[in-house]
Design a protein around this nucleic acid. Structure first.
Lengths: 171, 171
DNA sequence: TATCCCATGTAACACGTTACATGATTAC
DNA sequence: GTAATCATGTAACGTGTTACATGGGATA
């Protein structure tokens, strides 16, 4: 369900695009929010076309198909945004490792937390790059999600640091 | 993969339990970190037994089977904790709505953000209850994950509030 | 004896990942 | 001509969700 919304959303904001284009756009923008590879995107576009939410606007060289959102497609995104209450993720490997941390002894737990911190700092760096590349012009899809991602990653880092300190004091 | 680890982790910490017990434990403790229903848990326990990571310690009334972790099972959790680098979630309906927020006009966006806030406040309340019920005794599985969940939810709320304010000023 | 909780399972379907497979066009 | 990139798809497999199905034991 959400993949269709993501595709319709991108098409709504950026205008017509091919499956190939959308795959690339996923990689560079929406990726930190919703991942999908071409093997998921192509069949989903076909279904969206069958359901009348997008149309094949043009067929170009190399079998390239350019898709455009229909009014029904726009309505579908709008409805989802206004009515759908997001299911909270509640399935995070990071959180699972956090949960099971007490199974380790203190030095091991610290090592795990430090690895997590390193990964998070890298992620944070990546998000800052995105922010610099896509300056926060309002109206641009993704600005708010980027801020959210940065805040969440920072708060994860704070948690990791705090927990490392606590474990060091215990030991 | 992660479901096995979650099951092995619970069995490691709490001692032998049945599929039914584990299903209940998921609901009240690990649930905010990794969800699973009985229809996933029963087959997974069978596989774990087939792989020698747990054993059927006893068979009681009503076909009840009590599972216990084997040393191999403990080793498996330990290895996963030390070696497995968690894949970041990168698939969150909340974040997707955040991403697509610019498709809405300001009052609509504020309404969406307020709904998100309400859900988050409820979640936060639930997590606080868990914290009170399970006082932070070190060594107890889940203490750290609970702190993490609370911090993440709080930072989500901060983001929502900040974004609402920004949208109100724009409008 | 009826209802609730214990207790376990299977089946159908949706979603996601990885790998396989193919071919056209462009740039060197 | 050959390598990189454009461009699209399918298949196999693993994981997750919902619904279906069954029955024993305790309690009112």
């Amino acid at each position: 369900m959400s993949l269709r919304i993501a595709l319709l959303g991108l098409l709504s904001s950026s205008g017509p695009a091919s499956g190939y284009d959308l795959t690339k756009k996923f990689e560079v923008s929406i990726n930190h929010v919703w991942q999908a590879g071409h093997s998921q995107i192509y069949p989903e576009l076909a279904k969206l076309a069958a359901d009348g939410l997008v149309t094949v606007e043009a067929e170009g060289a190399r079998g390239r198909k350019t898709y455009a959102v229909t009014p029904e497609g726009r309505a579908e995104v709008h409805r989802w945004m206004m009515e759908h209450v997001p299911a909270e993720p509640a399935r995070s490997e990071n959180a699972l490792q956090a949960f099971l941390l007490p199974l380790l002894d203190a030095p091991e737990a610290v090592a795990v937390l430090e690895r997590m911190s390193a990964v998070s700092r890298a992620r944070l760096g990546h998000l800052y790059e995105l922010k610099v590349a896509n300056p926060p012009a309002s109206g641009r899809l993704g600005v708010h999600a980027l801020e959210l991602g940065i805040m969440q990653t920072e708060s994860f880092l704070t948690w990791a640091t705090t927990t490392i300190d606590a474990l060091r004091h215990d030991a």
